[in-house]
Computed example of a mutant assay.
Amino acid sequence: MTTPPPGLSTPLLTPTDAEKKALLDARNEEEIRLLVAQMQKAGALGFDPSTHVKGVITAVSYASSPPTVSLQISGDTTTTITGVRIMNNFTPVTGQTVDIRKQGADIVITGHTADVSGTARGQVGSGWIKATLTNGSHNGNSNGDVYYRLKLDDGSWKVQWQGGWAPEGSSIMIDSGQALPERFWPKALRSVPAARQVSTATSVVFDFHTDGRVVLTGHTYSTSASTVSGDVSFVSIGGSGFTSVNGSHTHIDGGGFATTTSGGHDHSVNIGASHDHGFYGGAHTHTAFWPAWVSLNGVEYFL
């Protein structure tokens, strides 16, 4: 028994365990009655349940905001539903079999049912498109044919590439006559580094233009002959030490013998002696070999 609060003369009794259980059962029963009443009022539930069905994508609206697709549901090939939304990391491709979540009148695609090999190229549903080349050839350095595809990455479109290209003397891989479809065009020029045949240089740059052209840049397009121009600053030994002399000179003649214009001289350097083997005042170039191949594996850009 507890002490009664002020104003009450009758003491309060603590409920027994049986009384507590009875109160809890009554409360639960009331909640169940309310739920049943709600279900009866709605016919089943107080809300439309979410259901899953299967469908096939028949068209994709890449440029719409947000992007949407058209599809046919549950094998029905006579009725096409348009304007269907997608998740922000799902890339729709015409012909894909997809999982669809439907709640009331709302329909959204939640994912793509894998229906081709994970290494498939050019098959329906894979998204990969084989590039039509203006110059050169596919399979550079046995890296496979050149393919590209569109991907939705957290709501932003980007283009991925793979394969190898053999330039065969041209810097233009894809020209305006074979330009990429418009949905692959970037909003501004995209310059992306790529691996190349390791000779003189180890990388090049692919320029993806806003009109669908793809051009190779970033290396000198010429033969392998090296050119040096300008004044050469070199050091020769003299009676009072080292002196720098401007002007061209050669050390090897056509027969492989050392030649000079002023007699014998020595290029050995004593420890601590000041000397210069660089270029003085003149420009010079080191031209690069044409790459026999360039790789597009790992190349991608956002639109």
Rank of each mutant, 00 (worst) to 15 (best):
Q96W: 12
T94A: 15
G155K: 00
L152P: 00
A114D: 12
I174M: 07
V84C: 07
R121V: 06
G104R: 08
T119V: 01
T132L: 15
G164T: 00
I86A: 03
K187Y: 08
G177W: 03
A166G: 05
I100N: 01
D145E: 14
W128E: 09
D106Q: 12
I172M: 05
S142Q: 10
S191V: 10
T113E: 15
I172W: 05
T97L: 14
T110F: 15
I172Y: 06
G163N: 08
S191E: 06
L189I: 13
I174Y: 07
R183N: 08
Q96Y: 09
A188Y: 11
V159K: 00
I129P: 02
S191I: 10
P92Y: 11
Y148P: 07
R85A: 15
Q123Y: 14
A120E: 10
M173F: 03
T119K: 06
K158L: 15
I107S: 13
V84L: 03
V146R: 04
W157I: 03
D115K: 08
S137T: 06
T97A: 14
T94G: 09
R85F: 13
F184A: 13
P92E: 04
F184D: 04
I81N: 08
D99R: 09
R149W: 12
D99M: 14
T78M: 11
G140S: 02
M173R: 03
I107N: 10
I81A: 03
V108A: 10
V98Y: 13
A131Y: 12
Q162F: 10
T79M: 05
M173Y: 02
L133Q: 05
P186N: 07
N135S: 12
Q123K: 15
I107R: 15
T79D: 03
M87Q: 04
G118M: 09
H112Y: 11
I81V: 14
K158W: 09
A120V: 05
M173V: 06
G83F: 00
P167H: 03
Q96R: 05
N141S: 05
Q160W: 14
I86W: 01
S142R: 06
W165M: 04
M87P: 00
W157K: 08
G118H: 06
A114F: 09
A166E: 10
V93D: 15
A114G: 12
W128I: 14
S142I: 02
R85N: 13
S156I: 08
G83Q: 01
T110R: 14
A179M: 04
T132Y: 03
L180I: 07
H138A: 04
G144C: 07
N88H: 09
L180C: 09
F184S: 06
K130C: 15
Q123F: 15
D115E: 14
G83I: 01
S156Q: 12
I81H: 13
Y148E: 06
I86M: 09
G122E: 05
N88E: 13
W157V: 05
V108Y: 02
Q123M: 13
G122P: 01
R85H: 13
I86Y: 01
R190A: 10
T119F: 10
L152A: 01
G111D: 02
T119W: 07
M87F: 05
A120R: 06
V84Y: 03
G125W: 10
G169N: 01
S126F: 11
R121D: 13
G169K: 01
G111L: 11
W128L: 12
V93S: 14
T82R: 04
V146H: 00
A166I: 01
L150R: 08
